[in-house]
Simulated scan of single mutants.
Amino acid sequence: MSAIRPVPVRCVGGILHDQAGRLLLVQRANEPGRGLWSIPGGRVEPGETDSEALVREMREETGLVVRPGELAGHVIRGRYEIYDYVCEIESGELVPGDDAADARWVDEAALAALALTDGLADTLRGWEMLPRC
Rank of each mutant, 00 (worst) to 15 (best):
A113D: 08
G78F: 07
L64K: 00
T49C: 14
V55F: 08
E108D: 11
P68K: 12
I82T: 05
W105G: 06
R10S: 06
V9L: 15
E90N: 08
P6D: 08
L23C: 10
L116T: 02
T62L: 14
D107P: 08
E60H: 01
S91V: 01
E61W: 07
D99C: 13
R22S: 04
Y80R: 15
E31C: 04
P8L: 09
R132W: 14
R28A: 13
S51E: 15
P6N: 06
E108F: 14
V12C: 08
D122K: 02
L16M: 12
P46N: 08
W127N: 05
V65F: 09
A110F: 10
A115T: 06
P46S: 12
D99R: 15
D122L: 09
P32T: 06
A20T: 10
V95H: 09
L54F: 12
T49Q: 12
V65H: 08
L25G: 04
N30T: 14
G35C: 05
L94P: 01
G126L: 12
M58Q: 08
R10F: 03
E90K: 12
L120I: 02
A103E: 00
P46M: 12
G97T: 06
E93G: 15
M58D: 01
I76A: 12
W127L: 15
T123Q: 11
H17S: 02
R77L: 10
P8K: 02
R77C: 03
I76M: 08
V66S: 03
A109I: 05
H74I: 00
L114T: 00
Q27W: 14
C87K: 00
G92V: 06
D18L: 12
V106R: 10
D122N: 04
V44D: 03
Y85G: 00
C87W: 04
A113E: 07
G42Y: 01
E61M: 10
A112H: 04
T123C: 09
P68G: 13
I4Q: 14
V44H: 02
V44K: 03
V7M: 09
D102P: 01
R104L: 15
G41N: 07
L23R: 02
R59Q: 13
T62R: 05
G14K: 04
I82W: 05
E70M: 10
R34K: 13
A112L: 09
A53G: 11
R28D: 00
R28G: 02
P46L: 13
L130A: 12
G41L: 11
E48G: 05
L111K: 01
E88C: 13
P96H: 13
V86G: 03
L36W: 01
A100S: 14
T62P: 09
W37T: 02
G14Y: 13
R43K: 13
L16S: 07
C11E: 04
P32A: 11
A100H: 03
M129A: 10
T49S: 15
L23V: 07
E93W: 15
I89F: 09
R79Y: 07
R104Y: 07
D118G: 10
L64V: 05
I89Q: 11
